[in-house]
């Protein structure tokens, strides 16, 4: 929990060298909602993505749109009616050239899911996002900046993992693929992404378990 004044927070560090992209996320909620935004049957979900420098542009609006779509599918909003869940994603280090958004998108999704869990917001499961690229015909997981620049296509893929036993099905929630690729390449990317998401899911779950164990008063 990197931010102590928020209800929940998480920092996501990823990339080829294990630290090119750094994204921090805070979650506050359930808090009071403005009457204008109040929904009588469910919680209002507010998400802001802030870039490293300056004000958010349309680049961040698209990141926000995709991240919001993923989060909407897991937050059990009906359990907190007439309240506000406020999520702020701040990019600390993009770790990729400005033309690309894969790492930031993956980081925004993963950090907000962890921060939501940290804040104790009821979730129906986790969304796990992974980043891939096709470089010289090969699928590369977590490509480096040089590989991104050389890549034919980039892919950010997110899977939803429901709460429950280990061998649950991974459901494809989001896929943002850009570049030049064939149908077969796309299907192979999704296959690789699912395996990577299974690994990532284990890591995220153990992080949450550790956090819960630490926060238990009588543990």
């Amino acid at each position: 929990m990197p931010l102590h004044n928020s209800d929940g927070s998480a920092e996501w560090i990823a990339g080829h060298n294990g630290g090119d992209t750094r994204i921090i996320c805070s979650v506050n909620g359930p808090i009071e909602v403005k009457t204008r935004d109040e929904l009588p049957t469910m919680a209002t979900l507010e998400l802001v993505v802030r870039p490293v420098v300056g004000l958010p542009t349309i680049r961040e609006t698209l990141l926000q749109d995709c991240t919001y779509g993923c989060l909407r599918s897991i937050v059990l909003r009906t359990q907190l009616p007439r309240s506000l869940i406020q999520i702020v994603v701040q990019v600390l280090d993009a770790g990729e050239p400005v033309e690309y958004t894969v790492y930031e998108l993956v980081g925004a999704i993963n950090s907000s899911v962890l921060a939501l869990a940290n804040a104790g917001i009821p979730l129906s499961g986790l969304v796990v996002a992974v980043c891939l690229a096709i470089v010289e015909g090969e699928i590369v997981l977590n490509p480096g900046v040089d590989q991104l620049k050389k890549s034919q296509s980039t892919h950010a893929v997110a899977y939803k993992v429901d709460n429950g036993p280990e061998e649950v099905r991974f459901r494809l929630v989001m896929c943002e693929s850009t570049g030049l690729f064939t149908q077969n390449e796309l299907l192979q990317v999704l296959e690789t992404a699912e395996d990577a998401a299974r690994e990532e899911n284990k890591k995220m779950r153990s992080m949450i378990e550790q956090q819960v164990a630490e926060s238990l008063a009588f543990a």
Binding site: L172, C175, T182, L186
Partner: peptide, 12 residues
């Protein structure tokens, strides 16, 4: 037959 963009958002 090549693809330049594939974006999917399936939440439900």
């Amino acid at each position: 037959g090549l693809l330049t963009k594939f974006s999917l958002l399936c939440t439900d």
